[in-house]
Design a protein around this nucleic acid. Structure first.
Lengths: 342, 342
DNA sequence: ACCGCCTTTTAAACCGGTTCAAGTCCCGGT
DNA sequence: ACCGGGACTTGAACCGGTTTAAAAGGCGGT
């Protein structure tokens, strides 16, 4: 395997200096057309591609962005958001030949990971997703001088550019939909409270109840997991006055909740209505099919990547507000059961 | 924001040459202990971390490995394998401070992506997963001189180091389990035939039938999707003599299949037994719960990463055979229905 | 006092690009 | 014939590390 060609080889073959080759490569004006062609064909003839590392060293840009996934390893596979989100990122950055560096971390190591990412200058910028309450990362990246884009935190008190999708309207729609079906006792099974998006969804549910003139409903933690959703559902159904509808923080816990309800002898949606969140591929294939909220993670990824590129190149970017998620009504929601009181 | 310190700054503060700092950094023998300490404390005082790009340029190693996901964007989110697999990879490579470059591609662009990865020398090696029949990639990486590890193709005719998990025993166990329950007509809903692992699983099912002295069963394509699984299930149930059990290529199509069967009025497992593959988090929460085959994608990732590191560093690695997947028996399999003929 | 040898340190080349100040050429104007 | 200026090119420094060959220092032996 012969040594791969360098810019010097191309320069020599084209009969020009290395500087000229570099200019041609970067489409810098001021190179005669004939020269450009000579350089190009020389490069092609030798099969030359500029070395990433050399470029990175002299330009100071790594031409890569970083995504740190901070979740428990088991949880990471259950969320269809990230693969789609990453696909969206890729579709933008690959246009300019940039790459995506993936890091996984436990919630604890997180800060360390970002520090290393910044210290190494291995990436030119990072995405901050799954933002938590009192998240140390916005401040950290600011301190480190690491370009960053916040994904999905509506309160832009961070000072960082944000790409946001407001979950509240769709949750409100879901509650309204249930209210229209006659439900008055609508419970909520929430995701981890430390996530601002989980908290926001729960708040939207509470607000929607109030808006409909209903008393505050019951909210239980479901942790975005199947087990958590199941446990919360059991607890809700064991109450003296179980709710007639349950809204879940995600499809995973909703599906587990449906199973629990059916095991308890309830028929869905006759005895209990269920709403999920995410619209996972399976949601159309549960029985009954799952009414849920659908966002577009690929578009998130695209928007986030575009914003990050802008921050990296121009130092700042305008916030982006994505189209809200939509309510997908399927078979798991139905009229309130005629039962007991009133 | 002050310019970040370089090796020269450290050298100056420690009162030594840059070479010495470099030696200390790389734990090279032949530096006096006192000097090492002076260098170390100087580095710490300045908060110096060596620049990745500079190192990459002079050592010729990018200190990163690449994973190319070649699936349709929609499909990518449905497979819990990859996130866990990546977590496994990360856990190994992050020990040495290496990174994971993620690339997504459509089946068509694939070859181009690998070429670019190799040309850029942006990664030191790649994983080859979802190996297909007549896959061009093994030959390609060999030609490109790009270190690679094949993940999950048992026929090591590629000449490349392979990390393999033989699905056949567990599929065989699944069929046996069904045969013991009295089933004689066991159908199969397969993944895309171009994937060697999908094909292998189907073959294992066929072999197990033969081994049990049963006539060849019916196999239909399910494409590893929910829709495909549903369609195939419908087709199977519409037959004059529908099977009493169906084995699916993955949990996604199995779950969709269960829904179809239940919609058709069948009770599971009384009228139909179902076996999946993957053991997705939801498998314990369908109704009935899903009997399925469980592998350990995190261990795959670890083993694959270790093998790849070995190839990169030593030029070659020994093949690894992982512990086979296990059969998880849950509620979706039961005794054959007493029905019709015989 | 001199030598050989071992340990420690360093100067300088190198990795492969980018960039800028300083050329070189050529041409039209006077 | 000479000059100014625009269009192209290029030499050389630089990015921040690694590496090698050689120098410097220390020490016991004769």
């Amino acid at each position: 395997m012969a040594r791969r060609p360098t810019i010097a080889d191309v320069a020599q073959l084209a009969g020009v200096s290395r500087a000229t080759v570099s200019f041609v490569l970067n489409n810098r004006p001021g190179v005669a057309l004939a020269t450009q062609q000579r350089v190009r064909s020389a490069a092609e003839k030798l099969g030359w591609t500029p070395s990433r590392s050399a470029r990175a060293l002299s330009t100071g840009r790594a031409r890569a962005v970083g995504l740190v996934l901070t979740r428990e390893p088991d949880l990471i596979g259950t969320d269809p958001f990230y693969p789609a989100f990453m696909a969206g990122i890729e579709s933008v950055i690959s246009e300019t030949g940039d790459g995506l560096m993936l890091q996984m971390s436990r919630p604890g190591d997180e800060v360390e990971i970002y520090r290393r990412l910044a210290a190494d200058r291995r990436v030119d910028g990072v995405f901050l997703s799954d933002v938590r309450l009192d998240d140390p990362r916005p401040e950290l990246v600011t301190e480190l001088g690491l370009p960053a884009v916040v994904v999905g935190a509506v309160e832009s008190e961070t000072g960082l550019p944000t790409v946001n999708l407001d979950d509240r309207p769709v949750v409100r729609n879901a509650v309204r939909h249930l209210v229209e079906l006659g439900h008055r006792d609508i419970a909520y099974v929430a995701g981890p409270e430390e996530f601002v998006h989980a908290r926001r969804r729960r708040q939207a549910w509470a607000d929607a109840l109030a808006e409909a003139g209903l008393p505050p409903g019951t909210s239980l933690p479901g942790g975005f997991t199947a087990e958590g959703g199941a446990r919360a559902t059991r607890a809700l159904l064991d109450r003296p006055n179980p709710p007639t509808a349950i809204v879940y923080g995600n499809d995973l816990s909703a599906t587990a909740g449906m199973a629990v309800a059916q095991d308890a002898g309830l028929r869905l949606p006759d005895d209990l209505s269920v709403v999920g969140f995410d619209d996972v591929p399976l949601a159309s294939w549960t029985s009954p099919t799952l009414t849920t909220c659908r966002a577009n993670p690929v578009l998130w990824g695209r928007a986030a990547a575009q914003a990050l590129v802008e921050v990296i190149e121009r130092g700042t970017a305008t916030d982006v507000e994505l189209d809200p998620a939509t309510l997908v009504i399927r078979g798991s929601t139905g009229s309130v059961p005629v039962r007991g009181s009133r």
